[in-house]
Design a binder for these strands. Structure first.
Lengths: 210, 210
DNA sequence: AGGTCACTTCGTCTACCATCAAACAATGGA
DNA sequence: TCCATTGTTTGATGGTAGACGAAGTGACCT
């Protein structure tokens, strides 16, 4: 289980039970124990509970253990339809490969910063505020009090976080306004435009194979 | 057991059984298993069998595991009489803190190099031959064919290797000839002279608290 | 030779831990 | 509101890993 989580992605307990070739109940017992020892952390989202490695130190330790054991695990293969995998909407924000890459970029650029441990909430930084304005992305300031500014929302196909909250919504809204992305009719799929490639993907340095 | 070996020293199976609070037989079985998995290596010397970590990678893995577990083990306390601990003879070569420091220094300076893995034998390098001459240490070339030039000999008090073989013997012989060390009467203890501090410890950069 | 010490091998036993099915809880959609 | 889906909790069970004592091996000393 831990080995399969080493790719940094999150998995549900049932998935992990299949990987470990044990019953769901066994997996559940085992996972609660791993949680107690703070080797994994859980993120409840809808009726799914996503398990992932708790810490970089856990990953590092596993890494060296795998070297000793000489084991390599198979890569994670998403079973999501390909046309949904690259870019789609998730409620009012973006999801898919692009959204995950965007999330990572924004975090790396320190436009947002983590508030606490084990809580998906982010806060907007000084740098972030300026950068968003520069890129022509406008936050809806009316309901700032009601809603979290930004948070990590686990991506179904990628099993890694993308950006949710008010900021996530603002990004999607701006992306559609500027015609960087087009919504497919009668589907959640998003398609990037020529203009989007230049003004969005290009400027943000997102090299995502479409 | 593995944790206690993390200081790089070697220990006997009985010592490890005491540390792990199990019977000697249990420890023995466990250690053979660790050996099979190449986590530890054994060095038979006299009627003792010294166990130590097999590899730097094993130590590194344990290190990160200990960080996760938040455990720290007690340091190794030699039960050797203090007057024997610092410097003494071991058959025809030197042993004790000084000898171990000397071994490490010689290896670091690349005067000798390891031949194979898991074999204590060393071979003399070009650099080493010149350096020995420069320091006024003469090898006895008569019995080169019979004896190993140099080898790691496990130090009883330090539980780390010092230098044995023809080179080890040559070092002790020269040290006594040049009056760098004096042999205590009727004992294996060696005492360093003023001259020895200058011309031996000093030149070799050995800072060993006497 | 014989005795002691250090350690391993063998045979046996037991406690414990993973495992599973069935019951329970929670969420989401119809 | 009900049902399907997802996941957790519980209690019983069986297999196995790890423990030990006794016997065996080899090295060293006198």
């Amino acid at each position: 289980m831990l080995c399969s989580l080493m790719d940094g992605r999150a998995r549900t307990s049932t998935e992990l039970s299949v990987i470990a070739e044990v019953s769901p109940s066994t997996a559940s017992v085992h996972l609660t124990r791993l949680k107690e020892q703070e080797l994994v952390k859980v993120l409840a989202q809808g009726k799914h509970r996503y398990y992932s490695l708790d810490d970089d130190r856990v990953a590092a330790t596993l890494e060296s253990l795998m070297v000793l054991a000489g084991t390599r695990s198979k890569p994670f293969v998403p079973n999501t339809p390909t046309h949904l995998r690259w870019a789609r909407t998730c409620y009012d924000h973006m999801a898919g490969e692009v959204a995950v890459a965007l999330h990572d970029r924004i975090l790396k650029n320190k436009w947002v910063s983590q508030k606490k441990r084990h809580d998906g909430a982010y806060e907007l930084t000084e740098v972030g505020t300026r950068a968003l304005a520069a890129h022509g992305i406008e936050m809806d300031t009316t309901n700032f009090t009601r809603r979290r500014i930004a948070c990590a929302c686990l991506d179904w196909s990628e099993r890694r976080p993308h950006l949710g909250g008010a900021l996530g919504a603002a990004l999607l809204r701006s992306a559609l306004q500027h015609k960087w992305f087009l919504k497919d009719l009668d589907s959640r799929v998003l398609r990037v435009t020529k203009r989007g490639e230049r003004e969005f993907l290009g400027r943000l340095g997102l090299q995502v194979g479409a």
